[in-house]
Write a protein that binds this DNA or RNA. Structure first.
Lengths: 343, 343
DNA sequence: TTGAAAGCGATACCAT
DNA sequence: ATGGTATCGCTTTCAA
C-alpha cells in the first residue's frame, strides 16, 4: 500500500514494466485493462505502478490516442459577468456533473476579449477533445472559428453569428416570453409592460420579441418597454421609468426578463405602495433560486439549464465519437411556467 | 491571405514542410523563429503553414518540450462559493492578466469534492506546467498531494494542512484585523464587537484571532463575537445578534470580517436608528468595490489581491523554470487601511 | 498471453 | 542554413 514519492522526474511506463519484469506492451495492457493479461502479470504490473507512483504522461497518451480525455467549457464573457450571473454557476455545476459521469475532465477557459487568440491557439493545439460554449453576447465570432477549426463543439444558446454551422442547444426564449404574456392576459391584465434585458444579448433580444409578438397578436399595446441589464438594481430603475412614463399609472402587468429584475421591480412597486399582484401582476424569468424567495413568491419561467446542459454534453460526446463529422444539430427546450403568487 | 479549411484531420508539420519544399527541421525552425533560416525558406514555410491552416499539435509539442504552455488555477470550493464570492472573480481577473503577459494559457479547474481524484489524475498527467491554488477551506489535502506530485505550484492563502511543503503567498489577516481594532480604539471606542467569518476558513479564523489579540493587548473585552459567512445577509443577522445580546447596547465599534457583512450590519444599525459612525464605528475588510459605495463610505482594509496574484505567478513561473526544485517560499502581504467615513 | 517494433507529431542534435 | 535522425512516452499491430 506504499506509494513511493519519486524525486524529480515522474516514472514512465518503461520503468514500471522493468520493475514488473514484463514488456512495455504488457504493462500498458495490464494498466488499461482492455486486453487479456495473465493474472500474474496483471498483479505484478499493478504493484509496480503503485510502488513507483506511476501515472501515464498525458502528452504521450493523447499523441497516440488522438484524445485527451478533457473538454473545455468556454465562456466568452467578461469575468465580472461570469461571476455575477447565476446562470453560469448553475450551468457549470451541471456540466461538471455531466462530464464526471462520462469520465471527462472539465477545463474552463475564460475568453476575455484579449485572450481570444491565445485560447484559439490552445484549442487548435488539440489540448481538449471538444468544447461547450455558453454564449450570450453577439460580438464574438467563436462559432465560425470553432467550425473552421473542426473541433467538436456545442453551443448552449445560439450564437449571433454562424449559428447554422455549429450544433446548438437552446431554450425558446421568445416562446417563453409569449407564454408569460399569455398568463398575464388570461389573468385579466390589459396594460402589460416589460422590463427587457440588454439588446445585445440573445436572452434579452428574444424575450423582448416574444413579449411584443404576443401582445400584438392579442391586439394590445406593446410600447411600454424599459431596458435593464438583468440585475436587481436595473430592475428597480426600469420599473420606475415605466411607472413615470406617460400613462405609466395604467400598467397592470409586467413581464421582467429576469427574476432579479422582477425582484428589483417589486421593490420599486412596494416603495410606491403598489400591491402585487392586486394592482400589478408580474412574471419573471429564470427560476434559479430567487423567485421562490421573493415576497410574494414570484411566478416565473424556469430556464431549463440542467436539461440543456445534459443534452449539450450528450451531443458533444457524440460529436467527439464521430470525429466532429456529424451535421450540426439543433435542440430547443421550452421553459416551463412556474405558477406562484404574483399573477 | 487565404486560410484553407482542412477537412477532417489537422495538418502536420510534415505536410507544411513538403508543401514548402523543405525539411521538417527547417519548417520547425522557421515557425519557431529561434534559429537562423534563410529568408526564402522562411517565407515558403510561413505561406505553406497559412495555406494549410497549420497549428502545432499540442500533445506532440509538450511531449518533446516537457512543457505545455498552460497553468491551472485550482479552486477547491463548491461552485456556489466560487461564483458568489467576489474574491475569486477578482483573483481570476488578475491571474488571467498576469499569465497573458507571460504567454501562458489559463486553465481553470473547479475541484468539487467528488472531482478531486480526477483532477489529480489530470495534474499528474502533466497536462499543465504548474498550478495556482486559491484555498479557503480547511478540509482538503491538496497541498500534500501537489507536493507529492512534484508539480510546481503556489498557494494563494495558506492551506490548513501541509502549508510548510508548498510555496505560499498570503496576506496577514490577523495583523490587518488588529490594525482595524487599533483604529477603532484610537477613535475612542472601547466596546468593540466583531462579526467574524466562518471558523473553517482561514480568513475567518485569522481575522477573528487578530481582533481578539489586539483587544486583549489593550485590556478590553473580547467576548462580543457573532459569526457570519461573509455575505451581506449574514452580516445583518450577526449584527442583530450582537445588539440583542447582554450589554449589546454598549457596543460602540464593530469590526466586520468582510465589507459585505459590514454592509449588512450597517443596514441593521440603520433600521434601529443607530448612527454610523456617531453611535457605532465600523471597519470592514476587502475593499473590493462595495466599501466605497456604502452609505457612509466604509473604512476598510484592502485585500491586496492583485499584489498576491502577481507574486504568485512570479513564484510559479520561477518554480516551473527550476523544475519545481526550489525550496517552498512564503510571501506575506500586509493589507492597507483605507480610511473612509465609518470610523 | 506476450514482446518487438512501428508509429503518433513535434523538437533538437549532429553532420553537412 | 539545411536535412537526417534520435527522442519524448505511450498504444497498438504483428508475430511468435
Amino acid at each position: 500500500m506504499t506509494q513511493v514519492v519519486v524525486n524529480g522526474h515522474a516514472s514512465t511506463l518503461d520503468e514500471v514494466a522493468r520493475l514488473a519484469g514484463v514488456s512495455k506492451a504488457t504493462a500498458s495492457r495490464a494498466l488499461n485493462g482492455r486486453s487479456k493479461v495473465s493474472a500474474k502479470a496483471q498483479a505484478a504490473v499493478v504493484d509496480a505502478a503503485r510502488e513507483l507512483g506511476y501515472t501515464p504522461n498525458g502528452a504521450a497518451r493523447s499523441l497516440v490516442m488522438q484524445r485527451t480525455g478533457s473538454v473545455a467549457v468556454i465562456l466568452p464573457e467578461s469575468d465580472e459577468r461570469v461571476f455575477s450571473d447565476p446562470f453560469f454557476a448553475r450551468m457549470l455545476h451541471a456540466v461538471a456533473r455531466s462530464l464526471r459521469e462520462r469520465d471527462l475532465q472539465l477545463v474552463l477557459l475564460l475568453a476575455q476579449p484579449g485572450d481570444e487568440d491565445r485560447m484559439l491557439l490552445y484549442l487548435r493545439g488539440r489540448y481538449v477533445d471538444g468544447a461547450i460554449v455558453a454564449s450570450h453576447h453577439r460580438d464574438d465570432r467563436l462559432a465560425e472559428h470553432l467550425s473552421d477549426l473542426g473541433l467538436p463543439c456545442v453551443f448552449i444558446g445560439a450564437p449571433w453569428i454562424g449559428a447554422e454551422r455549429v450544433p446548438v442547444v437552446d431554450s425558446d426564449n421568445a416562446g417563453a416570453a409569449a407564454q408569460a404574456v399569455r398568463v398575464l392576459i388570461d389573468g385579466g391584465r390589459r396594460t402589460i409592460a416589460t422590463i427587457a434585458g440588454p439588446r445585445d444579448m440573445r436572452a434579452g433580444h428574444d424575450r423582448l420579441a416574444g413579449w411584443r409578438q404576443e401582445l400584438d397578436a392579442a391586439g394590445l399595446d406593446s410600447n411600454r418597454v424599459a431596458h435593464g441589464d438583468f440585475t436587481e438594481h436595473s430592475g428597480t430603475t426600469a420599473c420606475a421609468e415605466l411607472l413615470d412614463a406617460d400613462g405609466g399609472g395604467d400598467i397592470d402587468g409586467i413581464f421582467a426578463a429576469s427574476d432579479l429584475m422582477a425582484l428589483g421591480a417589486m421593490r420599486e412597486l412596494g416603495a410606491r405602495g403598489i400591491r402585487v399582484p392586486d394592482d400589478v401582476a408580474i412574471v419573471g424569468y429564470d427560476d434559479l433560486g430567487v423567485a421562490e424567495r421573493t415576497q410574494p413568491p414570484l411566478t416565473t419561467l424556469r430556464n431549463p439549464i440542467d436539461q440543456m446542459v445534459t443534452e449539450a454534453v450528450r451531443l458533444l460526446v457524440e460529436a467527439i465519437a464521430q470525429g466532429g463529422r456529424g451535421a450540426p444539430r439543433r435542440v430547443v427546450f421550452v421553459p416551463e411556467l412556474v405558477r406562484r403568487d404574483t399573477v
